[in-house]
Design a protein around this nucleic acid. Structure first.
Lengths: 235, 235
DNA sequence: TTGCGACTGCTGCCATGGTAGTGTGCCAAT
DNA sequence: ATTGGCACACTACCATGGCAGCAGTCGCAA
């Protein structure tokens, strides 16, 4: 029997009465997938998840729809729903798209970012450093994400962030596997600092260059992982 | 009384038994919105649409969810669902993102496109010319879309196309209003030809340059429209 | 005339039940 | 031993009904 979740090791979803249940279920399952609590290829089921969460099948089903649009689950009508495998081609593509978007964003940030956003970015860097010292990788990843979100907000492209977000779905599962590698966190943090300094100086070329270094380094690590950890990927 | 659809002037949705109804409803409504048969700000209703389509409310509702994710409708819980207004800021943002993606795609196409894709592009250009001569703007728009899709396929970035697609949702409604302007179609077609020639020649710089001309020209037209047609936009 | 509260008619949200489609395994026929 | 077919279990799909939240109205009281 392939139980969906091994009893109590999953964070229990505590419902907030104010926001729609569907949305909460969606982000809950999304987190479970991205953090690899639900493994690629694992079978899901409206039925099973709904009883496990103490809800009806409708909100679960509607969450599946959104996850399928995002490419995180594959729905096979009348047969079942699986956590999407990590497809190498899709990871490559997501990274490619992310690159061009982030380059454009960071250039624009260097040219336009205001005092306020610079302060927010600086604060974020402090939080990253703190999480790094504590080896709190979960929150480090949150701050990392927030760093990139702040960048896209600083140039008033909220929608770009949503696009990147949905692409990152493909990358996050990989990243999550990489994070605890020794030295990796420090390097990433230094690169973030370098990007920040370039933006602060208003130097678009340097900012793009630093971002390129950053993303290329991440990509190298991902490729490394794809070689070492073949059974985790498809294609 | 603001009836959702004025009786018979909407294309009737003919159901295909093989594919899920939800998906069909989704793309049906999406087309209605993009082609402006459903106007920005217009009220939708699960109830009303479901009876009009002869279905239950469930697939309509599920289609709404996807449309809301895409930004084409705004759902106000317990109050109603509206066709999203055309927000100038979002149009700008969509165009910005589209630019950087299309530049990267066209460069990559110039460097990598194979014989087969070049042939497909050439064929597409012929179809565009034909539609242009017939003043068949609806199908011209389809071919235009296909042209850009072929580009992203030629570099094996199918997901990039989906991203662009969803961004284009914001732009399509605008484009649809521009198309019939005299001279516009010819110009666009010439630009497409220029892009194609550059790709064929394998000249990435020129290809990007021609794409830039193309998109900038489109943008100028959009800005013109935003000035002339203020009541169609929000913000 | 004006303020305010109950009422009514909407909406989308969630629960639940029936159905059709798909795969699996058993059993019989060869 | 192999294969064909059929029953069954399981899935997601769609229909439907009850409900809570919000707005607009209408009437009553100050």
């Amino acid at each position: 029997m392939n139980t969906l979740v091994e009893n109590g090791d999953l964070p229990v979803l505590t419902l907030d009465k104010n926001t729609p249940v569907t949305a909460q279920v969606y982000s809950h399952i999304r987190q479970l997938i991205l953090r690899l609590h639900l493994k690629p290829g694992e079978a899901l089921s409206e039925q099973e998840l709904s009883v496990k969460l103490g809800l009806s099948r409708t909100p679960v089903r509607e969450a599946f729809i959104r996850l399928a649009d995002e490419g995180l689950v594959d729905v096979y009508p009348q047969r079942g729903t699986l956590v999407a495998p990590i497809r190498i081609a899709e990871v490559k593509e997501a990274h490619f798209i992310r690159r061009v978007l982030e380059f454009a964003i960071v250039r624009s940030a260097a040219e336009n970012a205001g005092r306020r956003h610079l302060a927010l970015l600086e604060e974020n860097l402090r939080l990253q450093a703190k999480a790094q010292r504590r080896k709190d990788y979960e929150s480090l990843m949150d701050h990392d994400e927030a760093f990139h979100r702040l960048l896209s907000e600083s140039v008033a492209l909220p929608r770009a962030w949503r696009v990147i977000q949905s692409l990152m779905g493909q990358l996050d599962r990989v990243r999550y596997r990489i994070l605890p590698k020794p030295g990796h966190g420090d390097l990433v943090r230094q690169q973030h600092v370098a990007i920040f300094r370039a933006i602060q100086a208003g130097d678009a070329d340097r900012a793009e260059h630093e971002m390129r270094e950053h993303l290329d380094q991440i990509w190298a690590t991902i490729e490394q992982l794809m070689r070492d950890d073949r059974e985790f990927f498809t294609d």
